[in-house]
Amino acid sequence: MKAYLGIDVGSVSTNIAVQNGAGEIIAGLYLRTQGRPVETIQAGLKETRRILPADIEICGVGTTGSGRYLAGVIVGADVIKNEITAHAVAASYYVPDVKTVLEIGGQDSKMIIIRDGIVTDFAMNTVCAAGTGSFLDQQASRLGIPITQFGTLALQSANAVRIAGRCTVFAESDMIHKQQMGHSLKDIVNGLCEALVRNYLNNVGKGKELLAPVIFQGGVAANAGIKAAFERALNLEIVVTPHHDIIGAIGAALLAKEELDIIKKTTVFKGFSITDLAYRTGSFECDGCPNACEIAEIYEEERVIGRWGARCPKWDIVEDNNE
């Protein structure tokens, strides 16, 4: 049976999805990148091969996320796409008339505005960690609550305390202050959910017109407390799609299918055997000019398959040889 592989290599998590021709997800993995994208991709693919039925043939691969180029050269990707487009494509796939996509991941958050099936506006937070999953993670562990129970705890609160949301520094000092004043944990946690939502809507939303249907995806969409806070803030129903945590990977798989349908070529996927190859990354400083670019390279066995970081074409040789 034919299937398409999507890989989303983000800063916090690496997600893998295999979607068959009928659109069903036959394998889905959510792994922590832990600063080792190459190892994580290899481990993820090894696991994917184990899960997949033997008769599955991968006939297209797409990569996305901030590590998309790295993943692309390792696995041999037919399409390498930015995560905003990948998320939008997957959202439209699940809810065809979607108008607003809220996405909160580990280290970034996005908002995508869709009208008549096409993206008309988007924003991605840049300077701020107060609106992302990492901060929730950090606070959960400070309070000793497993992140998976964070949302349920927030839902038990009837009275959210006000937490400053603009900056993690303000938020944390506010939380400590409230906790020492004797507010209950559930109210503080709920207050934090509201603060995060407020910050996200101000910082990423900036005057955008948010219309229903609204989809909420990304790792943080698992948090029922945040979902409820969004519903209260927007006074709209928020839909969390199935596989919301690996939605970027699904988008990449959908894009790979679309791309191959258009160009009518066979996939350049190198196969699951790459999980047994040795990959090595390295970097050096180019001394060609005062820019002193930090060049990163990746080796497959003894061959360079990718180089990044140069501000001039000096180190592009690799790509030329491959063409």
């Binding site: 796409k81 930015n82 487009t85 096409i118 993206v119 008309t120």
Partner: peptide, 21 residues
């Protein structure tokens, strides 16, 4: 440059889709 490139790629996709539609 990665953050800028991601946004530019998405923006180009957006403009292209809009133009094609």
């Amino acid at each position: 440059k990665a953050g800028m490139v991601t946004r530019l790629e998405a923006f180009v996709d957006l403009m292209r889709m809009k133009k094609m539609q």
